[in-house]
């Protein structure tokens, strides 16, 4: 008797467990659909013709797949008066992002190395000031920066945008490397000093070879930030030097002619592809950067 009721109880809880599992998985799938839906809609819309968009369903698959919208978005969509697609702006973004990422990462590595391993009086204060600099709303520097770039003669140029991204990326890159190097025992630097190595030798021979993971995290973080930037791009560029985010916004919001939703979507996907690619390839490092950038230390 006792045994029987026991097994019944177990069976019952087993059944409710399975039901709970089902509920759990359906909830997770439901949320996955919520996150995937916009991407799905973007892709299907970009593959439809305008006619099909007007007559069809938002979430329906394209009846007839066409890449016309993609080629228009890439090479002939209008961003205002010019109609060259997003291609030139895509390359602008590349030209801005690559040097800005490289320079800010290198400087961040050197700064982090100093702050973590070569402490001197005041180093902590300097680091705190640099860190606070990460958190300012950039609106507060827009006006003086616009004037300064003018004075420096690089207003509206790609070097000007590189400069801005390097300056305002320094705080984060320094933070990333500092937190990484702080976990490396100070005895390593001491041993190298006794061995006769100097500041740069120790950095080059001992710390840099150790830094691959944090370099990847920093490069991904900086690349995502700079590629996705809109505020600096729209404030400090001019007709020929705009980054892809600005061009995309101009295409979408241009009021001339027929609204080509499929071209908008194709342009949006093109603008998103590099960072999405990085996310898919190196998601682990991407997440590490996000959490390192928010939870200090």
């Amino acid at each position: 008797m006792a045994d029987l009721s026991m097994t019944q109880g177990v069976r019952q809880s087993q059944a409710s467990k399975i039901a709970l599992r089902w509920l759990l998985y359906s909830l997770l799938v439901l949320f996955a659909l919520f996150y995937l839906m916009p991407l799905f809609v973007m892709i299907t819309t970009s593959l439809k013709s305008l006619d099909e968009i007007r007559t069809g369903d938002l979430i329906a698959l394209p009846r007839e797949v066409t890449f016309d919208a993609w080629s228009t978005a890439w090479s002939s969509a209008c961003t205002g008066i010019q109609c060259e697609g997003v291609r030139p702006y895509f390359w602008n973004s590349v030209l801005i992002a690559i040097p800005a990422v490289a320079i800010s990462t290198l400087l961040g590595a050197m700064n982090g190395y100093v702050v973590a391993q070569w402490r001197f009086r005041g180093a902590n204060i300097i680091f705190s000031l640099m860190l606070f600099g990460c958190f300012i709303p950039f609106q507060v520097v827009l006006l003086p920066m616009a004037r300064t770039l003018g004075i420096m003669g690089i207003a509206g140029t790609i070097p000007g945008l590189i400069f801005v991204h390097v300056i305002y990326g320094l705080g984060f890159t320094t933070l990333f490397f500092r937190n990484f190097y702080v976990s490396i025992p100070a005895e390593l630097t001491k041993a190298a000093k006794v061995d006769g190595a100097g500041f740069f030798r120790i950095f080059w021979s001992i710390f840099l070879p150790l830094s691959l993971p944090i370099i990847v995290v920093t490069v991904i973080w900086q690349f995502t930030q700079i590629w996705n930037d809109f505020l600096f791009g729209v404030s400090f560029s001019q007709a020929g030097t705009q980054p892809v985010t600005v061009a995309l916004n101009n295409i979408v919001n241009s009021t001339t002619g027929v609204k080509e939703y499929n071209v908008d979507m194709a342009a949006a996907i093109i603008a998103a592809l590099p960072t999405l690619f990085v996310y898919v390839v190196a998601g682990k490092y991407f997440i590490r950067g996000l959490t390192a950038g928010s939870v200090k230390g």
């Binding site: 025992p185 041993a191 190298a192 000093k193 006794v194 001992i206 150790l210």
Partner: peptide, 28 residues
């Protein structure tokens, strides 16, 4: 330190993690 003609062994050993044992010994 490098000009004091000394050698030092540390508590954590402070071996250079990316170098082989041979390179560790010959680095100085």
């Amino acid at each position: 330190p490098k000009d004091r003609d000394i050698a030092m062994v540390f508590q954590s050993y402070a071996l250079y993690p990316t170098m082989s044992v041979a390179k560790n010994i010959t680095f100085g």
